[in-house]
Amino acid sequence: MVRNRFARPIQVAIAAWMCVAGAFGADEPEVVGRHEDNIYQLTFSPDGRWLATASGDDTAVLWDFQTRKPHVTLTHNGPVYSAVFAPDGKRLVTGCGDGHVTVWSVPDGRQLAAIKQHEDAVYIVAFSPDGKRLASGGGNGGGGDTVCRIWNTEDWTVLHRLEGHTMPIYGVAFSPDGTLLASTSRDRTVRLWRLDDGSNRVLEGHTSDVYRSGFSPDGRWLATASQDATVRVWDVASGQCRATLPGRRDPIYGAVFSPDGLLLAAVGDDCRLRLWQVPEFTPVFEERMAREALFALTFSNDGKQILVGGEDTSIYLHRLQDDP
């Protein structure tokens, strides 16, 4: 009697779970490339042809994503923490541990400019949506140069210095409309800067270092990853924390929204990729992807694949399946 009473709900739950598991893929991750040291960032070019990777082996690599072959290796004098494409896809900018911001031509890998404005490592660079500005942030373990720079991408001069963080900046991200910049720091705060007047709002709530961040495509949400083992989702308009998404207990290093804004993905020290459905922020997928900590992730431009990388130096591809 009891069994019959609960049989139907259990069947429904199992079916729902299988649907979810099928929809979000259970394939083994494919290794699409390797570095010789930590991978800190993965980014697709706007046309999806090129993948840029930033690594602790002192290189950034431009990969032909179709052939999975490295197209050109960009050598630096220190670990490369960040590599991003300009919105027109013709330039790649890297941030290096030696304090340089370097501009490269795509796809030939010619160095166009190398400027040292930061006194310490550059941990993150990001282009504005119109490509006219670039933001950079960094520091050192204990603090150092914690000023966020806004660059003019025509002549590579610094337009603005955003001062406020008291510890290294690990992440910067422009809002999709280009009016706001989010910066995240070891000082446990998130700052939302208005780029027209340089004012900022401090978003507090994380209880440890805040690593990288990403806006949703509609600009409504900002996701931030933290050493405190959570991803926080902030309502950009109000500055309120909309959701605190727990991992297990390990630091989470990266969080990004899918191009269609329907998924939020995160990776961290427990080697797992996690997905949440937006806007409910309900968990829909979790899988161990690597042998060691994952620092970086990105969606392909069509949103059907996710690349992750980190401490074990491999780039893993995970396919999201459309149909159960």
Partner: peptide, 11 residues
């Protein structure tokens, strides 16, 4: 804790 903040490897 280390370097003025939480230790990265505390876990």
């Amino acid at each position: 804790t280390a370097a003025g903040g939480d230790a990265r490897m505390a876990g």
